[in-house]
Amino acid sequence: MFIVIACMCSGILVGFLTKGKPFKYTQPILTFLIWALLFLLGISVGSNQRVMNSLTSIGLEALLITVMATLGSCLAAKALLMYLNRKKK
């Protein structure tokens, strides 16, 4: 846990120290890292025999919660984006 907090704090420090300098590679690096994390999570779930065996018993409720949480996040992000774009105009 200490390593995670140290990495986050070091990132905050680097961001603070370089806030005036443009870094055009931030977005592609973040996108790649997010896709890599999702891929590795998929490998972890797919290789866990206990999780794979219990997928049928998880049922409709888990699927519904997942879909609704994703939909809610997308709608909230869209609303925030519209709000921020309205403020710029």
Rank of each mutant, 00 (worst) to 15 (best):
1 M>R: 07
2 F>W: 15
2 F>Q: 11
2 F>L: 13
3 I>S: 07
3 I>E: 01
3 I>C: 06
3 I>M: 12
4 V>T: 09
4 V>Q: 03
4 V>S: 02
4 V>D: 00
4 V>G: 01
6 A>M: 05
7 C>F: 12
7 C>K: 09
9 C>R: 10
10 S>R: 14
10 S>N: 07
11 G>C: 05
11 G>D: 00
12 I>D: 01
12 I>V: 14
12 I>G: 04
13 L>T: 11
14 V>G: 01
14 V>W: 06
15 G>R: 12
16 F>G: 09
16 F>Q: 08
16 F>T: 15
17 L>I: 14
20 G>D: 03
20 G>E: 03
21 K>F: 10
21 K>I: 10
22 P>R: 13
22 P>W: 03
22 P>H: 09
22 P>D: 01
22 P>M: 04
24 K>V: 07
24 K>M: 04
25 Y>V: 14
25 Y>R: 10
25 Y>H: 11
25 Y>C: 05
26 T>V: 12
26 T>Q: 04
26 T>C: 03
26 T>Y: 10
27 Q>V: 15
29 I>E: 00
29 I>A: 01
29 I>N: 00
29 I>F: 09
29 I>S: 00
30 L>E: 00
30 L>S: 07
31 T>Y: 05
31 T>H: 05
31 T>S: 03
31 T>R: 03
32 F>E: 02
32 F>H: 11
32 F>R: 10
32 F>L: 12
33 L>R: 12
33 L>P: 00
33 L>G: 00
34 I>P: 01
34 I>S: 01
34 I>R: 06
34 I>M: 07
34 I>K: 04
35 W>S: 02
36 A>Q: 04
37 L>C: 04
40 L>M: 13
41 L>W: 10
41 L>S: 06
42 G>P: 00
42 G>Q: 02
42 G>H: 07
42 G>R: 04
43 I>K: 06
44 S>V: 10
44 S>T: 13
44 S>F: 13
44 S>H: 12
45 V>K: 06
46 G>M: 02
47 S>E: 08
47 S>M: 13
47 S>T: 13
48 N>W: 11
49 Q>V: 14
49 Q>E: 06
50 R>G: 01
51 V>Q: 07
52 M>V: 14
52 M>F: 10
52 M>N: 05
53 N>T: 10
55 L>Q: 02
55 L>V: 14
56 T>N: 07
56 T>K: 14
58 I>W: 14
58 I>S: 12
58 I>T: 15
59 G>K: 09
60 L>K: 15
60 L>V: 15
60 L>H: 14
61 E>F: 15
61 E>V: 15
61 E>G: 13
62 A>P: 05
62 A>Q: 09
63 L>N: 08
63 L>F: 07
65 I>P: 03
65 I>E: 01
65 I>C: 07
66 T>W: 02
66 T>R: 09
68 M>S: 07
69 A>D: 00
69 A>F: 06
70 T>N: 03
70 T>I: 15
72 G>K: 08
72 G>E: 02
72 G>H: 08
72 G>S: 08
73 S>F: 11
73 S>Y: 13
74 C>W: 11
74 C>K: 14
74 C>Q: 08
75 L>A: 05
75 L>P: 01
75 L>N: 03
75 L>F: 06
76 A>C: 09
78 K>D: 00
80 L>A: 05
81 L>Y: 14
82 M>T: 15
82 M>P: 03
83 Y>V: 15
84 L>S: 13
85 N>V: 09
88 K>F: 05
89 K>S: 00
